[in-house]
Amino acid sequence: MDEKLIKKEVLHQGKGNTDYADGTKISFHIKTETCDEEPKIIDDSRQWKEPAELLLGKKFKLEALEACIRTMASGEVAAFTIDKVLLAPYPLVSKTLRDAYSKNKINKEKKPHHCCGMGFKEGLGYPDLDELVKTPKDLKFTIEIMKVARAGSYEKEFWAMSEEERINSIPALKEEGNSLYKVGDHEGASKKYSEALGRLEQLMLREKPGDEEWLKFNDMKMPLLLNYSQCQILQGEFYSAIEHCSTVLEKQPDNVKALYRRGRAYVEVFSPTEARRDLEKAAKLDASIAHSCRSLLSRLAKMEAEKNSQDKTAYSKLFTSS
């Protein structure tokens, strides 16, 4: 920490050492204000949904702030006055923190913005930050360290993982989902499968469609989509199940599980033609599920008969004289 450009005042002593290794996760509250005679508060994390978090050594955009936090022990409260020459990135960092943690997010559609190098063509969407870009100032940061999680003691966020860790996290999430499903926690299982699918989508965005890695990731998606669709059916989310099974069937038209589950969902939303098509095909492809398919088709026939009867009754009432 450059003591000529950063002045520290300890307001409350913390406990423990500060020899933080890279990868340590720090949870902290921060209040930023100008150094004017009448200070103006720019940010106050106590007005946000939760404290901010910083992963040390991961190229945080505001190096001066990370340097300050590295000097603080758990539970410590300190005020840092930082020279404006070190604060050029602060408006963008503040915007990022507000977007992530603020309870009252701005409507981004009404306030478009984008960055170009270190300049901001259309502003950041926050007038006070736009003013700070135009007129840099020394700022005072009051920081309280809420929690310190040493490297290796917590589950890494996906963005902080190495490529190998990201790929390995997906089957791990699938197994967690399977375990939750076995004990009847279909909602919890659904969340695990959904998270794994989201991670796969992020990995696939980095690959060219059709290339070897992209195809490998796409193959990994299929069982996750099937597991997720089963959970959706059990939670009554039938249209979601239909959508995800359809994604599988686009790649694997004869996938029996996808046909059966989509057919079952079609029964539940009363789409007789589609249900009959999927269930009859599934029964032909796999004799072991033929009985289950026939049971659903029998139920579908009863639903159709009831619907026809109701329609006939309603139609006849139209011509019944009062």
Rank of each mutant, 00 (worst) to 15 (best):
V10S: 07
G16S: 05
N17S: 15
N17K: 13
D22V: 04
K25E: 14
I26P: 09
S27P: 04
F28S: 03
I30T: 06
K31I: 12
K31C: 05
T32V: 15
E33F: 06
E38T: 10
P39W: 03
K40D: 00
I41C: 11
D43N: 08
R46H: 15
R46C: 08
Q47R: 08
W48Y: 15
K49G: 09
E50L: 08
E53W: 03
L55P: 07
L56P: 13
G57S: 07
G57H: 05
K59V: 11
E63K: 11
A64R: 00
A64M: 03
E66G: 06
C68F: 08
I69E: 08
M72H: 03
S74A: 10
G75E: 00
E76N: 04
E76W: 03
A79T: 10
A79R: 08
I82S: 00
L86I: 11
L87P: 11
P89H: 02
V93N: 04
V93H: 04
K103L: 15
N104W: 07
K105W: 01
K105A: 11
K105H: 09
N107H: 10
E109A: 11
M118G: 07
M118R: 01
K121T: 12
K121P: 00
E122D: 14
L129P: 03
L132R: 07
V133F: 08
T135M: 10
K137N: 10
L139D: 05
F141A: 03
T142V: 11
T142I: 14
V148G: 02
A149Q: 13
G152R: 02
S153K: 00
E165V: 13
I167M: 09
N168S: 15
N168C: 11
S169L: 05
K174I: 02
G177K: 00
G177Y: 01
V183R: 07
G184N: 05
H186D: 13
A189M: 04
S190L: 12
K192R: 12
G198C: 04
R199W: 06
R199I: 05
L200R: 04
L200S: 01
E201I: 14
E201L: 13
Q202G: 10
K208S: 12
E213L: 13
D219P: 01
D219K: 15
M220A: 08
M222E: 02
L224R: 01
L225Y: 06
C231Y: 00
L234I: 15
L234F: 11
Q235V: 10
G236C: 10
G236I: 13
F238S: 03
E243V: 06
E243W: 04
H244C: 05
H244T: 07
C245T: 01
S246Y: 00
S246V: 00
E250Q: 09
K251A: 10
D254K: 06
N255H: 07
K257L: 02
K257I: 07
A258F: 02
Y260P: 01
Y260A: 03
R261W: 01
R261Q: 06
R264H: 11
V269T: 13
P272I: 01
T273P: 06
E280T: 14
K281W: 12
A287G: 08
A290T: 14
S292Y: 12
R294V: 12
L297E: 00
L300W: 01
L300G: 06
A301N: 07
Q310M: 11
D311Y: 14
K312M: 13
K312V: 11
A314M: 15
S316C: 09
K317S: 12
L318G: 13
T320K: 15
S322W: 08
